[in-house]
Every structure is written in C-alpha cells, then in structure tokens.
Amino acid sequence: MTTTLVIGLDGQGSGDRALAFAKDLAIRIGDCELLVVYVIEWSPFSFQTAEENALRHKRREAEITTAHERVVDPAVETLTSAGLTARGKVRHGDVADTLNRICEEEKGQQIIVCRASEGGFAKRIFGSSTANLVMSATVPVTVIA
C-alpha cells in the first residue's frame, strides 16, 4: 500500500528543510507519494469592500497561480527529479485546518511542516499555525526545526 506524506510549505526558506526531511523519509519508505501543499491564509468571515468582492475571483486565481509558480511547482519538481512520486496542491483557508483536511481527504499518514515562521504579537495572541496544527491534527505531525 502506498504511503502518502503531506508536506506543508509556507514559502519561507525553512520549507526546504521540511522538503529534505520528507524526501529522505520517502526514500526510506519506498512505496510513497509526496503531496506538497501550500495554504493561503484566508477567512470566509473577514470584511471586504464591494470592490474587493468584485475582484475576489480574479485575485484568488492570481494567488493560486503565484503560489504554484513560486512555491509548490519548484518543490514538486525537486522531488520528482529525485525519482520520487510527488504532486502539489494550493488551497485557501485556515492553515492548520486545511492541512489536516487535505491529509484526511488524501488518506495521508503524516504531515510534515517546518517550525512556525510567525512571531511577535500575532503569535502571542493567536498561536502559530504549526502549534495549532500539532494540537488539532488527526494524524501524526512532524515539525522540522
């Protein structure tokens, strides 16, 4: 049975370490598929102007394209060029919830993420996405320092 590992990237340099760890783990496992996921932080309960609403679909498409081009596709390319099976996904939503939901949908066995990139005030108030994921995930989570 193929093992599916979900790698959550945040577009920062530390993502490379998560990618390297996942690559190493996949080689050890053998029959393994890697799913590279980038979640664009977004809430359906935020407030927007009418003009922002009118342009939302256009911007959403642009955000997905940019995330694929800059983060997900190069990561998938790195993995496939190493002979591994990999594909990418970009979604909008709450980072922790969305990563976990995708892992459940894809019947993944583990989520691999790098350490929190948020800091300061926001982290103190809301906690980091990584901490939230660790606390709420329904599958094992590996956090790379």
């Binding site: 359906p44 407030f47 927007q48 609403n53 679909h57 955000e63 939503g93």
Partner: peptide
C-alpha cells in the same frame, strides 16, 4: 475557499 463567502457578501 478563497472566493467571496456568503458572510462577506452580507457584511459588505
């Protein structure tokens, strides 16, 4: 997700 939600349209 990422499209205008019902809540956002209502709030606007």
């Amino acid at each position: 997700a990422g499209e205008v939600s019902h809540f956002q349209a209502l709030a606007t």
